[in-house]
Design a protein around this nucleic acid. Structure first.
Length: 294
DNA sequence: AAGAACTCCTGTTGGC
DNA sequence: TGCCAACAGGAGTTCT
């Protein structure tokens, strides 16, 4: 599930229940996810207050009152559910992408002093949690090599061209590489390449000319990446299928993929008569229109 | 050093 | 209907 937009949506959903709140009790139901939990994980969290909840790439970063950072990655199937006791009826508010989750995969339960319970569920267990001192975050191996944030000022055509120069990898693989642009995944790479009308099989080096300057393709790609991520975040607000706000309102849900998962369907580009095709690159499905993506 | 293959794990889907 | 292979929104590790 989670690429940058989804992680950002999860961050926004968790923020009011975590920031300025203290961990009262943390329950681990297994010793590891993708990696073992840090030593004394529960003890190191209990009694600490969350100062802020941020995001870098696909990582959630909960800064704690003791200057440690709780780093959380959702992997492929990680999800959080928030349960809040409300009013006399004990009404439950839920923030989740999946009501039908199997409690057998509830691996971590955070009980906050506020009374909120936040449960981490992850069937495939590709997610993980770490505790890293705040001042070691930037130099930590997981973070030191990360590329630029696509929604920040650092993603420019010049940046992409400089990174792409001489690269023989496919454009698809280049964009999936977190060391280039941090936070893109299979869906949004496919969608961004569609918006930029660029073939996933084109060599990454074609984003730069002989002098290492960005081509028009690089300019288009930057705009496409930004727009698809912003649109996804905006629409993501409506993916909170089971989110009920205090007033009881429910978000609508909408999928607006142009190519992802649309093999065999007509291309969405106005005027294009192409059909969406699926190929496998580096073991991952790529969806694209061979007619208008060149 | 870059790039591709392999790996972790469980659940769902589509074809026979 | 049941069975089995393919596949799933990720990314570190290991190999060439």
């Amino acid at each position: 599930m989670p690429e940058l937009p989804e992680v950002e949506i999860v961050r926004r959903g968790l923020e009011p229940f975590l920031v300025d709140k203290k961990f009262k009790h943390v329950e681990l139901r297994r010793p590891d996810l993708r990696f073992p939990f840090p030593e004394h994980f529960t003890e190191r969290l209990q009694g600490k207050k969350v100062v802020s909840l941020g995001r870098r790439a696909k990582y959630l970063l909960a800064r704690l009152s003791n200057r440690e950072v709780l780093v959380m990655h959702l992997g492929m199937s990680g999800r959080f559910t928030v349960a809040t006791p409300q009013g006399r009826g004990g009404m439950i508010g839920e923030f989740t992408h999946d009501t039908g989750r199997d409690p057998a995969h509830d691996h971590v339960v955070f009980r906050m002093e506020s009374g909120t319970t936040i449960t981490y569920n992850d069937p495939r267990r590709f997610g993980f949690m770490l505790l890293i001192p705040e001042d070691e975050l930037e130099t930590h191996p997981l973070f030191s090599g990360l590329g630029v944030e696509p929604l920040g000022n650092e993603l420019t055509a010049e940046y992409l061209a400089a990174k792409a120069r001489g690269r023989r990898a496919d454009l698809k693989a280049f964009l999936m590489d977190q060391r280039i642009v941090a936070g893109l995944g299979n869906i949004y790479v496919c969608e961004a390449l569609f918006r930029a009308r660029l073939s996933p099989m084109r060599p990454a080096s074609s984003l730069a000319n002989g002098a290492g300057r960005p081509t028009g393709r690089a300019e288009r790609l930057v705009q496409a990446i930004r727009s698809v991520l912003w649109d996804a975040i905006e629409a993501g607000g409506s993916t909170l299928r089971d989110y009920r706000q205090a007033d009881g309102s429910i978000g609508a849900f909408q999928h607006t993929f142009s190519v992802y998962g649309r093999e065999g369907k007509p291309c969405a580009m106005p005027g294009c008569r192409g059909i969406v095709r699926r190929v496998v690159q580096a073991g991952r499905s790529t969806f694209y229109c061979g007619n208008c993506q060149r």
